[in-house]
Design a protein around this nucleic acid. Sequence first.
DNA 1: CTGAAAGCGCTTACAG
DNA 2: CTGAAAGCGCTTACAG
Lengths: 351, 351
Amino acid sequence: MSCSAVSIKGKPTSFDIAHLTGVSQSTVSRALRGSPLVSEETRQRIKAAADQLNYKVDKNASNLRSQHSGTLALLLFEDPTADDSHINPFFLSMLGSITRACALRGYDLLISFQQLSDDWHADYADTKKADGIILLGYGDYLAYRDKMQKLAAQGTRSVRWGAVLPDQPDISIGCDNLQGGQAVATHLLEQGCRRIAFLGDASSHYPEFFDRYRGYVAALEEAGMEAEAALQVDAAESTEQAGYEALEKLLERKLPFDAIFAASDLIAIGAMRALAGHGIKVPEQVAVAGFDDIPMARFLNPPLTTVLQDTKLAGETLVDNLLCLIRREPVQTQLLPVKLVVRRSSQFSPT
Amino acid sequence: MSCSAVSIKGKPTSFDIAHLTGVSQSTVSRALRGSPLVSEETRQRIKAAADQLNYKVDKNASNLRSQHSGTLALLLFEDPTADDSHINPFFLSMLGSITRACALRGYDLLISFQQLSDDWHADYADTKKADGIILLGYGDYLAYRDKMQKLAAQGTRSVRWGAVLPDQPDISIGCDNLQGGQAVATHLLEQGCRRIAFLGDASSHYPEFFDRYRGYVAALEEAGMEAEAALQVDAAESTEQAGYEALEKLLERKLPFDAIFAASDLIAIGAMRALAGHGIKVPEQVAVAGFDDIPMARFLNPPLTTVLQDTKLAGETLVDNLLCLIRREPVQTQLLPVKLVVRRSSQFSPT
DNA sequence: CTGAAAGCGCTTACAG
DNA sequence: CTGAAAGCGCTTACAG
């Protein structure tokens, strides 16, 4: 089909619209950007012409000129697992809510999965492809802390999902891991469990797990008990495999335990598999609880007691805070509420 | 910290690097792009200076000039569910593999979730933000077919995940749904099931489901049986809820059945919940199979027999084909192999 | 309310 | 192998 008005090769430009409507190119630009300087009648004519030619503003040109991209970048850090096909469902859920939050605010989203070990090629901000960066993922906090520091030093605007720490170089949003951990442990104690093992790293390398652990310790202390170091088993990666191995390690210690508090749902799933392998019944003999409430938690056998993080709110908060940063408005680190979700895996009933 | 060589306000440009190294800006650009026209010695000097100033090529400028963006866009279509928080895990998995495939090929990826009902604002290509578009998602094929046609007419390069159809306006990559459906039905027949219900739309509105249904019909015919229309129940959306409702509808028909072939795993999960609600035992009384092999399939109770689609290969194929299109190389629609994964849910054992 | 003009930071013929 | 220059398609002071 040929155009009735002007014959144009390739994509039309604002000059084409200008010719077609008999105004200047500046006016076309203003009209399409919604400038109040253009009369309504002119704007309508211009819009009609733009529609007719299927004209769209070239973002590369407008971004170059106006020096912002209307785009955010999401960097998802993965454990460098051999099997690269599965991302922690919790982060997938975060990714979904961040994508939606961006769209609602008129921003596009670039995504990138990064191996923590790789060279951090978060060039999106440096190359002006994105106005700011959202960091997301598990991984050794201390290992990428200096990278965040570098980002901040370069003036890159970024927010991070993770533990809110006193000495951090950036803005972070996280859920109340401490309170979540405390809620889980309190619940398990209420079920009658007395020897609760914790599966997950409890060091400043993994501050979110550490906070969950601290909450667990706090709950025990509140109940007049003391946390036993031998009942904590590292599981740095938040994977099923790490959970499986952590439980095997726990069993090797030959200590009695009647509950498992896994630092994440994936770890809990692995632990449950290991328990089943040893013929230990969940929840009758050993109660189990996780953290995250990933979609499959309710479908497990038995359904998993866990802590729900509101990923929708989390995504929105991350995006909103980053947009504040971009607009140079003041922002603060924030702690989001969590909710204990009780399911059958914690219905402890020793005989 | 202040720069030792030249004092610069804001981000450095290629002119800054040129001044610093005593060459022209053109040479800086060539050197950084790896042009063979630059001597190795000069290139090294320029690279060193660029590193020192932390210079990065402005993508908006280079994209504008060179007329391509090095970016692909992924449009994920969602069922307009009220609860907007969950995306079908299968597509999440595809999203992961597409992201990785893009990264490996040096492309960035923009993502966007789209409601099928919404105005299709796939402006990424028109606005030059992306060189091409990947379409992904369930939804009424006929409802967005003309939109794809429009995309193609505008010269937008795009590939779609979905059924490979004779009359389609675009390039699509899909798995062999027909063979997958046949494999499931054959397996259920081998388990001794004789009255296999199909849960899922079987019309050209949902061509992937339709192909799975056709495979099921073919398997029955091969066994000398005929598909019974009353044993097929629509479940247009691929959601747990749709599966639940489909099974309730099936039960209302008061027809005997001994197996459920759900057009997707999510539908199977909903159906299993409904079966449990009626006290019907899976797999003893009714065998169940799904399609997709989403991560939670193996954790269900009982673990779900299903059809694995190789999402890694699928993502790579989509990206590679789109890149071919962008380079104006010939491409073809492709059918990817599937694999039956047998788990306990199909261990039919009537008493 | 509108237009002429400068310029965002590159890439790439063109000329040497 | 290198440089001077044009130009990608916009936005936005500046002048009216």
